[in-house]
Design a protein around this nucleic acid. Sequence first.
DNA 1: TGATATGTTTTACT
DNA 2: CAGTAAAACATATC
Length: 262
Amino acid sequence: MPELPEADAARQRIADNCLHRTIQGFALGEVKHVDLPSEAERNRFVGTQFSQTRRHGKYIFAGSKDGPWLHIHLGMSGSLRVYDDGDTPPDYARLTVVFEGERRLAFRDPRKFGHVKLVEDVDEFIAAKGLGPDAMEIGDNAFAQAVGSTRGAVKSALLDQSKLAGVGNLWSDEALYCTGIMPTAKANELSADRVAHLRRAIQDIMGYVTSKNADYSHLPHDWLIHNRTKGAACPRCGGTITTLKVGGRTAYHCPDHQTNAG
DNA sequence: TGATATGTTTTACT
DNA sequence: CAGTAAAACATATC
């Protein structure tokens, strides 16, 4: 479940359950084709503790003041699970951080598109990746510049991590649905008001999802997320939920209340 | 069985 | 350079 809110919920789980505990070692699961830190890299964490966490876009980091950081990307199907030794361990655990005592932190990744790496410096890493500003922190002007000046489809701009970090397919659809903007609308043809509205919607939606720990069952029933089915009735206007391909992704939307202009 | 999938990267083309 | 499109990655689920 990996866009910005899911990544932040995962980061929060580390912050709440795994800080200031000495790392005893790591356990590996079925790791063929999974991109993980080498044994030498893992050993650099043994005997140390995580004391802080960070997140930028969909990228999660756990580290300490002077040591290296463990960087986690959840890919398409990854998640983090905290448990205690003696509990049933999660399925698809590729790498488990074993803390002294009972505590365990498992990186689950059924589809193996995620990864865990060691990074020396988070800011350098973000810069090297070419990530844009975090979607929760970007201001009006920067958003208008990054997204509103693009000639292509607004959805494609939202998904471009170099323009804006953290928005993925699900929440881009939700924000466009909420603001009544067609996914295929040309970003630079939207009014300044609509662009500003879109930024607020992204931050309101993702902030709310984050506050609910990315538990979709706690989200309002009239959100697109609960009606993301071709042919479903739009809970806002009674139109029909329809799909399009935009930027290679499936864009669920309601053609009755999502428009190119207006 | 085949289609689809919350992401990223690479390559090629316009 | 800006943008588009398609494919690849490995696997699960409907």
